[in-house]
Design a protein around this nucleic acid. Structure first.
Lengths: 252, 252
DNA sequence: CGACTTGTTGATGTACATCAAGGTACGTGG
DNA sequence: CCACGTACCTTGATGTACATCAACAAGTCG
């Protein structure tokens, strides 16, 4: 496991040309907002798959926005059991929780090679003081994350294995769609069945068997990293829920 | 199930004399902050046990701070399965999530008689604009809630039944302590085993049996609403975790 | 007093975990 | 090209934790 990741002092993406912005993954910013965010951004970070971006029990001086790539947020128990709390996609924000307790209460690890925007946590206060609209966006983000956790908790607590698997796959697909990571009903998933198992609170073997039941239903296909939805309605039914397409996400 | 709850136009608790503040459940406010919060508060709400304060799928014009009493935040699936996401105690804030999507994605129901402070959601923006320190507190709160959900997800996903029950009881006890609801290692819990089961993602019967195993270990006692910790260290060990005592909570 | 809610317990069923083994794909160095 | 290693997936056999069902006991409340 790589623990450090090196900042890249090379050419950076200027905020006004942020690829996320071009994709409408973010709300529109006023020129003032855009200028502040540009100055708030202190650099970029490239990280290889497997890099630990944030570690439970440590403090981080930085906040990040994902420009590209996937990560996972997780916790581990003393004996090694792992629970993946959430997957992190482009346009997602990480590190905000550290603001509360100082120490991170979870770890974040890159699942693929990533590019991240870096912001200094120390200037967060300045954002709150001078840019209430951005501060509001941060609350919005925290609140949205909470809603995803709520759903996840319902899944793990109250849905059966097939429902659970269908639900998480559908949800991930929808999130990937929102940041234009899908091409005619296909996505590249950078994670393994083990990751899925750890997210769903199931064993690897049982996840595998459930996955085979799911693919047997012809609703989806998932082979060597490529996930494809064949019958979206069927998948939605199996998931026992219609996922609400959320509004475009604010902030950087 | 009662669905509505009536506002009480009678004598209200002035913010500077907020009982929560006296108990140091909240951070200190500057006079300016205190004055704004006082004006932000639009009333009080008393609610009987069983009252639905917020309903999934509806919108609410209000935000609430709990002054006294317990509630639960939960979601239900189409077929009636219920997952309790979190318990709500005095000094907790509810309704913030509605800010994100408009519609609430979960319900909140009073477990005991309650007294709540009411704030108009429409003036939230004013808070962000003029009182960045309070805005920051709101983010803090959202972030703290997220951390509790993380823990809960780990429990339901990766801990065994005994561990789970021990953990949630210990956590509830600690939270109750923080708002002075405990008297020599005892609390009044206003909920039933069914509620615990729904919070832990377990069946009622299995929860009951696990609870009996737990009480057999002499670590705790729980009879007719009164919960008592007899051996805190033993309970902590059973929970497989030491819960970190958090800092005092900011905002109203 | 019955009616109802909450807790308790045993019997039985099932969903899931664990164990063990092998299969497939993709890399490496020869 | 093959031999070899490794990472990931697949599958059957077995074990166990938990759910479901059923019945009853103990309050509590009208």
């Amino acid at each position: 496991m790589t623990t450090a990741a090196s900042p890249t002092p090379q050419r950076q993406v200027p905020c006004e040309k942020c690829p996320l912005r071009a994709e409408t993954a973010l709300r529109d910013f006023s020129p003032e907002e855009l200028e502040f965010v540009g100055s708030f951004k202190s650099g970029e970070l490239t990280a290889e798959a497997g890099t630990t971006l944030l570690m439970e029990g440590t403090t981080s001086a930085h906040l990040y926005t994902v420009l590209s790539g996937w990560a996972m947020r997780y916790k581990t128990l003393a004996d090694g059991r792992r629970q993946i709390l959430n997957f992190v996609l482009p346009a997602d924000f990480i590190g905000l929780q550290g603001t509360v307790l100082g120490e991170m209460q979870h770890s974040v690890e890159a699942l693929s090679d990533m590019l991240l925007c870096v912001f200094p946590r120390e200037r967060l206060w300045e954002l709150y003081r001078n840019h209430p609209s951005l501060a509001f966006d941060l609350t919005w983000i925290a609140s949205r994350e909470e809603q995803m956790l709520d759903e996840q908790l319902v899944s793990v607590g109250r849905r059966g294995a097939l429902e659970r698997v269908a639900f998480v796959l559908l949800q991930l697909f929808v999130r990937a769609e929102q940041v234009n990571l899908t091409v005619d009903n296909k996505v590249q998933f950078p994670f393994t069945q083990q990751h899925l198992a750890d997210a769903l609170g199931m064993s690897l073997v049982h996840t595998n068997k459930t996955l085979r039941r799911l693919t047997a239903s012809k609703a989806v296909r998932w082979k060597s990293r490529t996930f494809e939805i064949l019958d979206r309605e069927a998948l939605t039914t199996l998931a026992g829920y219609q996922i609400n397409d959320r509004q475009p996400r604010p902030f950087i």
